[in-house]
Nucleic acid binder design. Sequence first.
DNA 1: ACGTATTTGTTCGTATGTATC
DNA 2: GGATACATACGAACAAATACG
Lengths: 240, 240
Amino acid sequence: MSLTRGDGVALWRKIATRLEEDIRHQTFGPGERLPTEQQLASRFGVNRHTVRRSVASLEDRGLVRAEQGRGTFVQEGVLDYQVGKRTRFSETIRRQQKTPKGELLQALEVPADRLVAKVLKIKPGATVIRLDRMGYVDDRPLSLAVHYFPAQRFPDLIAAYRSSRSITAALKKSGLRDYTRRSTKVTTRMPDSEEARLLRMPKIRPILVTESVNIDGDGKPIEFGVARFAGDRVQIVFEP
Amino acid sequence: MSLTRGDGVALWRKIATRLEEDIRHQTFGPGERLPTEQQLASRFGVNRHTVRRSVASLEDRGLVRAEQGRGTFVQEGVLDYQVGKRTRFSETIRRQQKTPKGELLQALEVPADRLVAKVLKIKPGATVIRLDRMGYVDDRPLSLAVHYFPAQRFPDLIAAYRSSRSITAALKKSGLRDYTRRSTKVTTRMPDSEEARLLRMPKIRPILVTESVNIDGDGKPIEFGVARFAGDRVQIVFEP
DNA sequence: ACGTATTTGTTCGTATGTATC
DNA sequence: GGATACATACGAACAAATACG
């Protein structure tokens, strides 16, 4: 593999262009790993520094993502997580021609701590049902969510969820006709080891954290949810 | 400085309580740096680990924020950045009893790139006005925003902004009665050096990035904005 | 671009006090 | 009392990020 030199175009730029073509033509498909910098360097007959310079320019433009110690990966398109009055996990995913899947991590009845009690407007210490769930899209982990429901109102929610494997369906079986999203707060932080492991993401990349409240037709809060998303796989979209 | 031991209360808890009092009494005011762990350890006559344990408990409760290589700082309360149909920077800040301020970094007329053209529904290459602005709250940098407007529709926007120092006022002077927020996308990533410097934040903490579109009464896009926020100073609040 | 000092973050190991069965 | 697990406290060394000249 030889590249002409001294023609007014820097070597790193030529290499960047070639790599960009390979990505556009799906020679390196979304999510795939590029050859190591060493391999690229010898293939193009240049120093590794030169390769690094071109990879850096691809990274700047968001085409690839370098992960220390793992490799360089072709960036997948980010998924839109739409948030509106009627936000349903599976609906918003299916609208983008992808396949959603949910996995229950655990289901518990626990006493409400201060924050949960305040949001759900129940007494601190009153029993709440807590569902921990992983959300997958096309079998890649997308979200890690904790949902709280007042146990008094939905006593059989856990059983209902286990049989239907859907929150919307379980709530309907528990007598709730419809619910809407009242508010959503979004923050960001670094993941802890557990979160990084479950979301299968490097610890050096940030996560998006949403806190949301769903209410019934009378405005009574029926669910409080905290969800964590791998920051480079999702963008939260608000459409008022 | 001596602390009684063996009375059933762990040393680290005593120290945490003392530090908490100092923060509540503003001995260490918001944003200020605490003494180093070494200094605290010798002042209290304990090992640095013991100090670290108490600082960690303060950090868990959100009272302080430790930054590697810099120190530990008293945390200011996080600011709610409210997003709805009518989102105005200064209104949302003033509603929280804080003082907003804007600083113009640069004002340019540039050709629209593909993304900007698509969002504003103009031809790629058509002239757009670009305003780069720092947003401050109580004199601390909060946001770093780039705004794009179609130049054809608002030819004198830059002059209008310079005289009023407000986007809403400048648009009004250019003949726009009212505008509303159509959509907001939120993502997260690590800051580059420039962003970290301007937002006065450490490079190891993530930023929130919002992309938003404002439209006029007829639904025509009149502004496209990209804003970056220091992740631990802001939460985006969306109420449909 | 590079070295040095400062400061927080992490990981060993060791010893002791406390609670529980 | 004895065995055991767990939290507390100390010590030393090194890693990583920052600040500065």
